[in-house]
């Protein structure tokens, strides 16, 4: 899962930051009245900024192609699931959903095949977040009234997946959910 490395990376960076700040603070506390501070600060500043720039550039180039807009773009989905979100429920159907009288059905999706969710909302903004069996967020998209967002995903593990609303939508936001199975 993606979250664990993210947390480790963050904690490591936060730790390094704390050490650097502490080190600099202690160096000031210990400094004698006559000490001159940092030598060649302009040069160091330049190198510091340059290294940071390079790191950020590498990160950008490495991560942008993984953005959800480009994933599975050139494949034909094996299945399309229509999703209409409404306070405080999700309608999921393999057929198109009529906004005037929305109805949903039980959804069963194939494993290892491309699935496309066509997500829209019938009232306010909602979130459409898919959680796997161990309650990890694996992918998400927003449901916006007036628009259809197409989220593509390949489920590897069979089992039950839950959908939670991840955009605050009112008093029962925390109870808005649905589920489907992958076989």
């Amino acid at each position: 899962m993606q979250q664990q490395p993210i947390l480790v990376l963050f904690l490591a960076l936060a730790g390094i930051t704390t050490i650097v700040f502490t080190y600099i603070f202690v160096s000031s506390k210990k400094a004698a009245q006559s000490e001159k501070g940092m030598s060649n600060p302009l040069k160091k500043r330049f190198w510091f900024s340059l290294i940071l720039f390079v790191i950020l550039s590498i990160f950008t180039t490495a991560t942008l192609p993984d953005s959800p807009y480009y994933l599975f773009a050139d494949e034909t989905p094996a299945k399309v699931v229509h999703v209409a979100a409404r306070q405080f429920t999700f309608f999921l159907s393999e057929k198109a959903i009529d906004p005037a009288s929305p109805t949903g059905e039980d959804i069963e999706l194939p494993a290892d095949e491309l699935v496309e969710f066509r997500v829209t909302s019938l009232d306010v903004n909602h979130g459409f977040a898919i959680y796997n069996n161990s309650n990890r967020l694996i992918t998400q998209v927003q449901a916006m009234p007036g628009y259809v967002n197409r989220l593509r995903y390949k489920f590897k593990e069979p089992g039950q997946y839950d959908i939670l609303c991840l955009e605050y939508c009112g008093m029962a936001h925390q109870a808005m959910r649905a589920s489907f199975t992958v076989k």
Binding site: F25, S27, M38, K44, S49, L56, T60
Partner: peptide, 28 residues
């Protein structure tokens, strides 16, 4: 994404670094 990344550059390279220079091995 670019703007969010780049916003950190001047902040870290100038402001944070200036604080470091002001503090590092300096009796204050």
């Amino acid at each position: 994404q670019l703007a969010s990344y780049l916003a950190s550059l001047p902040a870290a390279g100038v402001t944070v670094f200036s604080v470091f220079i002001a503090v590092y091995r300096t009796k204050i």
